[in-house]
């Protein structure tokens, strides 16, 4: 109530300045149309401003990774690998993938939020490169994923994570993860346009993400699984990504492993980016 009373006070003090208004309306010159890149950067700026106002948005890329890494390393380490130190070498790349993949779903929620407010219509009625609304936000998401990766790898190093792939291996692993996450986000933007509320979007996202991340090779070596489950794990895109990221970090990734992830990413973009834009254009 505090805010509303101050704002109504402001309202009383302010009024329209008709002279200035007339002046402002006289300026009819339209600047040269901004290009797609400028549009995208402007939307990135918007997303960054939101981080400034709502810094708790960063919890999922700061506290979560730390929590996950500590939790799973010490919970499963002894049981699965005999020692937490050995397990960390195996787990860290996997848990990194899981964390980043899970936070991709916020992209869809942000869009869904825009739709339920009126600003979605405002953006759609502007003469701009339409995908920029989403691509701009996705760029800032990539920054968020990078923060999560940095924190998790930093903590891992302190705990005893020793990647054989060296700095280059780790950086290319994170790069591959960012590419896949960017691609995966288009699924959430599609769903964000289809589903009616943030809650239903959250529900559906969890339903998809939970099995994909857990029934994978993030936590355990799939060879210990029953054959039918192993079959799923082997084709699970998250497993493929984890294999490539783990391989890159430890310097044993094959071109094929990396290629599969790149192709999967491109396929995701090819299918879901146009689908998102179609739904965006035709949203009632």
């Amino acid at each position: 109530m505090n805010t509303s009373s101050t704002s109504s006070h402001t309202n009383q003090a302010s009024s329209i300045d008709s002279v200035k208004l007339k002046q402002a309306l006289l300026t009819r010159s339209r600047p040269k149309k901004a290009n797609w890149f400028s549009n995208t950067m402007t939307f990135s700026w918007r997303a960054l401003l939101k981080l400034k106002y709502i810094p708790e948005q960063l919890l999922d890329v700061t506290v979560f990774p730390i929590m996950f890494l500590l939790m799973f390393t010490y919970l499963f380490g002894g049981a699965i690998a005999g020692s937490t130190g050995d397990y960390l070498q195996f787990l860290l790349p996997g848990i990194l993938v899981m964390t980043v993949i899970t936070i991709t779903m916020y992209t869809g929620m942000e869009l869904n939020n825009d739709i339920s407010k009126g600003i979605f219509d405002r953006f759609r009625s502007l003469p701009i490169w339409r995908p920029s609304v989403l691509v701009g936000a996705l760029f800032v998401d990539a920054v968020r994923y990078s923060i999560a990766s940095l924190i998790m790898i930093g903590l891992g190093l302190i705990l005893g994570f020793r990647p054989d792939g060296g700095t280059i291996g780790v950086i290319s692993a994170v790069g591959l993860l960012l590419l896949f996450s960017f691609s995966l986000s288009w699924i959430w933007t599609t769903l964000g346009l289809v589903l009616r509320s943030e809650k239903s979007l959250m529900g559906v996202s969890m339903m998809v993400l939970f099995p994909l991340t857990f029934i994978s090779n993030v936590f355990v070596d799939p060879s210990t699984l029953p054959s039918w489950l192993q079959a799923f794990v082997d084709i699970n895109p998250v497993s493929l990504l984890v294999t490539a990221v783990r391989g890159l970090m430890h310097g044993v990734a094959t071109t094929e492993q990396i290629g599969v992830v790149i192709i999967a990413s491109l396929l995701l973009i090819l299918v879901f980016a146009p689908l998102t834009m179609f739904l965006y254009k035709n949203k009632n």
Partner: peptide
Amino acid sequence: KVSLTGQFASVDEDL
């Protein structure tokens, strides 16, 4: 050439 002011405030409340 046109502008729209929708029924629900079409501005970003967080900014």
